[in-house]
Write a protein that binds this DNA or RNA. Structure first.
Length: 798
DNA sequence: AGCACGCCGACT
DNA sequence: GTCGGCGTGCTC
């Protein structure tokens, strides 16, 4: 028996199956999808079995045996193994990366180098003795001080180097205590009269003869501690066992079950359309304006799918995976829901994943990677806010959850629902072409009017001498709300919203020494950090350039707004929500719930408040500067701006009170702004499509972004030039190749970055040419220390 | 990627 | 004379 194994080494020449002999003792159990420990070269690595076969092309005499089987049940099923190969082709990633991303982090290997004793300890020099102590190995990390001595011993053969492969987290086991069923034994046991605790426990045992308890419960109920329990167990009154258990991440108290709401006519129509296609691989684009009740359609469709005995995956952007959202699903589906979010520990995530694998839950709500939920009988996949760029992973494997969803829907013959108030142009174009079925919700569920949106021309403000960040109109509106005891949300649409330090004398902004980017001030640690390479240094007291002490911390943008706001409306209670105030776990939720409970009048924040804010008392939303995203050097800048404005506007007037929105901008005539005003999606779509057609971007063209890095500027520019030339020669003349040019952030971690962009409509040879490019990279450039990264269908090209 | 094998400079 | 630098070649 031979197993094909994809080993856990992410490198080009290794990115293919390696054959291993399956030892006799493993043969009964071995299946594709299991993890194995295998010898690879002179070390041991983890791998995934992808295929079982009888013969190998490889010289049978040189086949090595599988060292160890890590699973008794496969962690990946056939569908996932096939999906990994598809992802490899689709995203140009290593197969091992695709496999790893499907499995919870707890199941990925942790490699730990060790020195293992291979002789009697007294054969070693005295200095090394304490390192081994009672064990016959020492972690390399703990023995850094004696590397030289260790090396000598290794040469002698008295110490061996070894790599220990560990699982990060395993199944949580709880200790069970089983009380003997002989009351007689319990009574007759002799306990010293002064062993009060044991006597107490003896009494408890008598009341619960023959019963079993979780150890912790028993201790609590009997009011004793573990040694007492052990003492009686030793006397033969109880025995122990261990039981598998799940960690309990839920901090939620009992959730009241709720029933479905009545659907509006519009919702009903959409629901019916989906329902009649429940067993087909159809993709629906549910285009519903903000507040139109998309979630209720999701919930009821899921209920339908469950009724048919199938399972559902619901994807949401991480940032909207709030307790409010979770509660809504738990209210409807109770224990049938597993929630996967970034707040869970690796162990908790692993437990949720096992519930899915064992089909103990039927619905998964989670961010991007939840698309790999190992359901066997999938009946529905939903991507809420389908336009969100977080659905695309920004490192290898660079997959888009939407593409994986559609692939899985074909495997399972089930529908996909893409929901959004502001669909991505790609999706809407596909709906227009009939590839997806378009379902529209044009009215708000509670029939509230859309908020009235005012666009404020900040150039006018400047002309009339108002240099503050608040226009006269917005300031007025804020005061009016405060007077009426209504709530205000202020949105600072600012990129690089993190804080920096600037010298007011010479204008120096503190830069990272390794990257071409400014350092960010971290309040918690009182240090300056680089978000790209992790470099950090203390906050300076004088300017490193001119030694002036007028060096000043320049707030997050939001902090500056907060200061101005304090002057404008001194009595207002302001909550600020940005990277600084939400750094701690749960801070996000705390701020939101405080605001929801009316503990503040104004909520001031960045991107993160654009979503999921659903409070009835918000009647005013102010966008302080709509321009910042608009002028980013990216083909999606207008689309992002439109989406953001629509999203924020949707926060106002969601209940009975009508809402009002002020959008401040220096470019009030831009279509992304004027059309977002009345949520005129289709005109925006038309206009933006025309732009994309003219400039040759998606959805008219497909894009591939290729990035080159090297520590030397001249080398990388030459390298990028050569590679781009190669592409120009090999791809069709109709394909547009832009660059190479320096990336927007031209240096990260002391490596210079260049990129080129391929824009094509039809390029059948693309995969082949890219493989060829990788070959050239491998033969000519890899040894110089250059890197190559390929991003198929990037969400941004900056 | 990691690790061993293999051929040329500064040290016990 | 050896320890050790990192070039290149392989991993079932």
């Amino acid at each position: 028996m031979i197993a094909e194994v994809i080993v856990d080494v992410a490198a080009h020449p290794i990115d293919r199956p390696f054959d291993y002999a399956v030892p006799e003792k493993f043969q009964a159990l071995t299946e594709p999808g299991m993890r194995v420990k295998v010898p690879f070269g002179n070390r041991k690595v983890l791998g995934f079995i992808t295929t079982i076969k009888d013969t190998s092309e490889f010289d049978p005499k040189r086949l090595k045996p599988i060292h160890e089987l890590m699973d008794v049940v496969p962690v990946l099923n056939g569908e996932m193994l096939e999906l990994a190969q598809w992802m490899k082709r689709q995203t140009v990633c290593f197969e091992i990366d695709a496999l790893q991303v499907m499995v919870p982090a707890a199941l990925r290997a942790k490699y730990e180098k060790r020195f293992v004793l291979n002789a009697a300890i007294d054969e070693l020099p005295k200095e090394l003795h304490p390192y081994f102590g009672t064990r016959d190995f020492v972690r390399a990390q703990e023995a850094e001080a004696v590397y030289g001595l260790m090396k000598k011993e290794m040469d002698k053969g008295t110490v061996l180097a070894d790599t220990n492969i560990q699982q990060k987290t395993g199944v949580k086991k709880i200790r069970m205590v089983h009380i003997t069923d002989s009351a007689e034994d319990i009574e007759n046991i002799s306990i010293r009269a002064n062993a009060k605790q044991q006597l107490k426990l003896q009494e408890f045992f008598l009341k619960h003869v023959g019963q079993s308890f979780e150890s912790s419960q028993l201790q609590k109920q009997a009011g004793v501690s573990l040694p007492t329990v052990n003492a009686l167990a030793e006397k033969g009154l109880a025995n122990f066992s261990s039981m598998e258990s799940y960690r309990d991440p839920s901090l939620l108290t009992a959730i009241e079950q709720k029933i479905a709401l009545d659907l509006t006519d519009e919702q009903q129509t959409a629901f019916d359309a989906i329902q009649s296609s429940l067993n087909t691989e159809k993709t629906f684009l549910l285009h519903g304006i903000t507040g139109s009740g998309k979630t209720e359609i999701y919930l009821q469709t899921i209920a339908q799918v469950l009724e048919e005995g199938k399972e559902a995956i619901m994807l949401v952007p991480e940032i909207s995976l709030t307790p409010q959202m979770t509660i809504r699903f738990k209210e409807r589906f109770g224990d049938l829901v597993a929630v996967l979010h970034s707040g869970l520990s690796a162990g908790e995530k692993y437990d949720e994943w096992r519930k899915i694998q064992r089909a103990e839950v039927k619905v998964v709500v989670g961010a991007r990677s939840a698309i790999f939920a190992p359901f066997q009988n999938l009946g529905l996949i939903i991507l809420d806010e389908e336009h969100e760029s977080s659905y695309k992973q920004d490192d290898s494997p660079r997959y888009h959850a939407r593409d994986v969803a559609i692939w899985r829907s074909q495997q399972h013959q089930c529908p996909v629902i893409l929901g959004s108030a502001t669909p991505s142009l790609e999706s809407y174009a596909r709906a227009q072409k009939g590839v997806y079925e378009l379902l529209a919700l044009k009215n708000r569920a509670k029939n509230q009017p859309l908020p009235e949106v005012h666009i404020v021309d900040m150039r006018e403000e400047l002309r009339t001498g108002n240099r503050s960040m608040f226009s006269v109109e917005l300031a007025e509106a804020i005061r009016a709300r405060l007077a009426r005891k209504e709530q205000v949300v202020l949105f600072l649409n600012k990129r690089g919203y993190s804080s920096f330090v600037l010298c007011r004398d010479c204008g120096t902004v503190l830069q990272c020494p390794n990257c071409d980017i400014s350092l960010t001030y971290h309040r918690a640690s009182e240090r300056m950090k680089c978000h790209y390479c992790g470099y950090d240094e203390p906050v300076p007291t004088t300017c490193p350039e001119c030694e002036s002490d007028h060096i000043r911390f320049f707030g997050t943008g939001t902090q500056k707004v907060e200061e101005e706001l304090a002057k404008l409306v001194p009595d207002a209670r302001v909550l600020r929500m940005d990277v600084d105030t939400t750094r701690n776990k749960g801070a996000h939720e705390k701020i939101l719930s405080a605001f929801g409970e009316g503990k503040a009048d104004i909520l001031l924040g960045t991107q993160m408040i654009a979503k999921g804010l659903d409070f009835p008392n918000i009647t005013l939303v102010g966008v302080l500067s709509a321009d910042t995203t608009l002028h980013l050097p990216d083909f999606r800048a207008a689309e992002k701006t439109y989406q953001l404005l629509t999203q924020v506007s949707g926060r106002a007037g969601r209940d009975v009170l009508p809402g009002e929105v002020y959008v401040q901008t220096y470019t009030p005539e831009h279509y992304a702004i004027t059309l977002a005003k009345d949520q005129l999606y289709e005109p925006f779509y038309e206009q933006e499509m025309a732009m994309r057609r003219a400039s040759g971007y998606p959805p008219y063209y497909y894009v591939v972004n290729i990035q080159f890095t090297h520590e030397d500027l001249m080398t990388v520019s030459g390298y990028a030039q050569q590679m781009t030339e190669y592409l120009r020669h090999r791809l069709s003349p109709k394909t547009i190749i832009i660059g190479p040019s320096a990336s927007l952030i031209a240096r990260v971690n002391n490596r210079y970055r260049y990129q080129c962009l391929i824009k094509y409509k039809n390029e059948p040879k693309l995969a082949e040419v890219l493989q060829q490019l990788i070959k050239i990279y491998r033969s000519d450039w890899i040894k110089t220390g250059a890197t190559l990264s390929i991003d198929m269908n990037p969400t941004t090209v900056m």
